[in-house]
Simulated assay, not measured.
Amino acid sequence: MTIEQNLNKVNQLLQDAIEEANRTVNSVTLLAVSKAQKINNIGEAYAAGQKAFGESYVQEAVDKIQALREYDIEWHFIGPIQSNKTRDIAQHFDWVQSVDRLKIARRLNEQRPEELAPLNICVQVDLFAESSKQGATTEELKSLLDYVCDAPRLNLKGIMAIPPKQQDTAQQLKQFEQISQLFLDYQHQYPSLTTLSMGMSQDMTAAIAAGSTMVRVGTGIFGPRPANWKQQI
């Protein structure tokens, strides 16, 4: 299948999940995860109507952003953030979904160019205390949200989470509902929180049923990454 066909299939699955959850049409945004994908593949997805793309590796992403600067693409950084990479992220991206600690938030705020709009931020939370996952703890979350909300060069937009992988749909739903409740609790304190970024190819339906407003899909759109893709980054 072509990238356009894959994208159409994913969008249909997305709309089916929205309908099944009795939610408003187009209430969930599809973020195409384009890490390790060639520039022409991103161009194909863009030509098929996809406008938001997510990247996890800074230098690879910057090269793509520069090559595709004539395209009206909304670029999201979704990977772990090293302190020495914040300047490039602040200068080139529209959104950052993986802000998990104050140090990173401060650097992004200080390094966001004045001529650009404030950087849209999702705070990443690790609600399940997974040692292998990035994310602020529930104890750290309030102070991080406070800082991002008040920072002049940042725009607090939402919460992002990557819960532990579950094969069972009921377990997926249970985890997503916990994240969604946390989001709703904080939404009362921070009205700008409108984005709940959770769910990927394998658990998208459960995430949408629980209230996700943005799902992140890579393989379903672009196909499997090359076996040695990490060596190419």
Rank of each mutant, 00 (worst) to 15 (best):
R87S: 07
I233M: 14
V96E: 09
R69E: 12
E130R: 02
H188M: 11
S212N: 08
L184F: 11
L196W: 04
A161T: 10
N22P: 03
Q171M: 13
S212R: 03
E4Y: 06
Q172S: 08
L127E: 07
G158N: 11
K103Q: 08
V62T: 11
F176S: 06
G220T: 10
R225V: 09
L127Y: 01
A52K: 14
S132I: 01
Q134S: 15
S56T: 04
R107F: 05
A207S: 10
I89T: 07
V217Y: 04
D168K: 10
E70Q: 14
T169Q: 15
N41M: 05
A67S: 07
S197D: 12
P118C: 08
K85M: 01
Q167Y: 08
P118I: 02
I159N: 07
G199S: 07
D63N: 15
I121Q: 03
A161M: 09
I73V: 15
S131F: 03
Q5R: 14
Y190D: 10
D94K: 06
I233V: 12
E74I: 04
Q232G: 06
R101C: 03
Y71D: 11
K64W: 00
Q166H: 13
T194M: 10
I42W: 09
R87K: 15
S34K: 13
Q97F: 01
L13N: 14
F176T: 00
A21Y: 06
L173A: 14
A61E: 13
N84F: 05
Q66L: 07
A17D: 09
S83A: 05
S212H: 08
A161Y: 04
I233T: 12
R153S: 09
A136C: 03
E114W: 04
D88M: 05
G218D: 10
E44G: 02
N6P: 07
D168E: 15
N26A: 12
A45Q: 06
P113S: 13
A61Q: 15
K157G: 06
E110D: 15
V10F: 02
V25M: 10
K85E: 03
G199K: 04
V33Q: 05
Q15V: 02
R216H: 12
E60V: 09
P191N: 13
L184E: 15
R101M: 03
H92D: 08
E139F: 01
K133C: 02
G211P: 10
A45S: 09
G211S: 12
E115A: 11
D72N: 13
V25E: 15
V99I: 06
E114G: 04
E44N: 12
V10Y: 05
K35D: 11
N40Q: 13
D126L: 01
M198N: 02
I104S: 02
F176P: 04
Q172A: 07
D94L: 00
I104R: 04
A209L: 08
